[in-house]
Amino acid sequence: MITVACIWLFYKYGISSYSALFWLKIVTLGLIYYFVKKYKSKEIYYYQNLGISKTTLWVSTLAIDFCIFIGSLILTYHFR
């Protein structure tokens, strides 16, 4: 949702909005980390029982999300 909103704003306002959108994305990733850690901490045991560590979960999900964000911005820039 955040990525889609950022792409829409980037499409509308262009490269001048990049810096603000970048920091908006970073802040929302931080908020997602905080709320998931607070409200979904019990579910970590599911993944640990499968051998997936907290670090692997966080690094993979946040990195994939951020890559999708950057990739979408690049594509929008080219097709705009």
């Binding site: 979904k40 019990k42 579910e43 970590i44 045991y45 599911y46 640990q48 029982n49 499968l50 051998g51 560590s53």
Partner: peptide, 18 residues
Amino acid sequence: AYKRPDLITYLPQFNFIP
């Protein structure tokens, strides 16, 4: 030990499956 599910698994007292 939580890094070794081949050694040990753990059922906590609360629901943990997403």
